[in-house]
Simulated assay, not measured.
Amino acid sequence: MKLSADLAGFSARIGHQFRRPELLLRAVTHSSLASATRPSNERLEFLGDRVLGLTMAEALFSADRGAAEGLLAPRFNALVRQETCADVAREVGLGDVLKLGRSEMMTGGRRKEALLGDAMEAVIAAVYLDAGFETARDMVLRLWGARIAAAAEKARDAKSALQEWAQARGMAPPVYAVLERAGSDHEPLFTIEARLENDATATAQAGSKRAAEQAAAQALLARMEAGDD
């Protein structure tokens, strides 16, 4: 089987040359156009979701080796959710090559978030079946690269990390209070308290409110993570 020009172009955009082109055709075929001889992408979507999940879990685990599970989980969820998959699908023009029934075509199926997200997962599965996990993982890391980097950068922000930790446990976001402002206008010294809904606190001092808040958040997060252990 030879890929049509539009699918060949899509294959080039995701950086994978299919040895079994029928896998890609199946990955872009929505159930509205499926038949007994032309299966839809639903089973591939199921498999692709798992390949994506393992890839993201591995990437986050490696990017932040000191993060507790409670911090990794919300980052993972943000990277694998349907909206993110749909965003990636738009970036590679997946909507343009979807095979849809007339009803879906007439109702803007090529732009629907659910269809795009599901199809993106199906494409991941198609690459996995065509060339194995390492190839599928490399493609995912390439297409999700900026998003993974952003998650890793966010991990270095102690205030964001503490907020993620709290929200993962159903708590309100932490609050910060200035306990003292000492020094001159040119060389101030702020003492900041970070407090969680469970009344756990930590304090820190720095020459700016932002720096003191980050230091207090880091101290409180370390205390909470130690308690999790």
Rank of each mutant, 00 (worst) to 15 (best):
L3A: 12
S4A: 11
S4Y: 02
S4T: 11
A5C: 05
A5M: 08
L7I: 08
A8C: 12
G9D: 13
I14M: 01
I14P: 09
H16P: 02
H16V: 08
H16F: 12
F18G: 05
F18Y: 08
R19T: 15
R19L: 11
R20Y: 13
R20E: 15
L23A: 09
L24Q: 02
R26D: 11
A27V: 10
A27H: 02
T29V: 06
T29P: 00
L33E: 13
A34E: 11
A34G: 03
S35E: 09
A36W: 12
A36R: 13
R38W: 10
S40V: 02
S40W: 02
N41Y: 08
F46K: 15
G48K: 04
R50S: 13
R50E: 13
V51W: 01
V51E: 12
L52W: 03
G53R: 11
L54R: 15
L54K: 15
M56E: 07
M56V: 04
M56S: 04
M56A: 08
A59H: 01
L60V: 01
G70W: 05
G70E: 11
L72Q: 10
P74E: 06
P74C: 07
F76Q: 02
N77Y: 14
N77P: 00
L79P: 03
R81Q: 14
E83C: 05
C85G: 14
A86K: 04
D87K: 13
A89T: 06
R90T: 04
G93T: 00
L94K: 10
G95E: 06
G95A: 01
L98A: 01
M105K: 12
M106V: 09
G108S: 01
G109Q: 02
K112C: 01
K112S: 14
K112R: 15
E113K: 10
A114D: 15
L115W: 07
D118Q: 14
E121R: 14
L129P: 05
G132H: 09
G132L: 08
F133E: 09
E134C: 04
E134S: 11
A136W: 01
R137Q: 13
R137W: 03
R137V: 10
V140G: 01
R142C: 06
R142Q: 05
L143K: 00
L143R: 00
L143Y: 00
L143M: 07
W144I: 05
G145I: 09
I148K: 06
A149M: 07
A152Y: 02
A155D: 04
A155C: 06
D157Y: 02
A158V: 10
S160P: 00
S160H: 14
A161C: 01
Q163N: 08
Q163E: 14
E164V: 11
W165M: 06
Q167D: 09
Q167R: 12
G170K: 10
A172D: 14
P173S: 03
Y176E: 09
Y176D: 10
A177W: 12
L179F: 07
E180R: 13
D185G: 14
H186T: 08
P188G: 03
F190G: 00
N198H: 08
A200P: 08
T201C: 05
A202W: 03
G207M: 15
G207K: 12
S208A: 03
A211Y: 06
A212F: 06
A212P: 00
A215E: 10
A215I: 13
A216M: 08
Q218N: 14
M224D: 03
A226P: 05
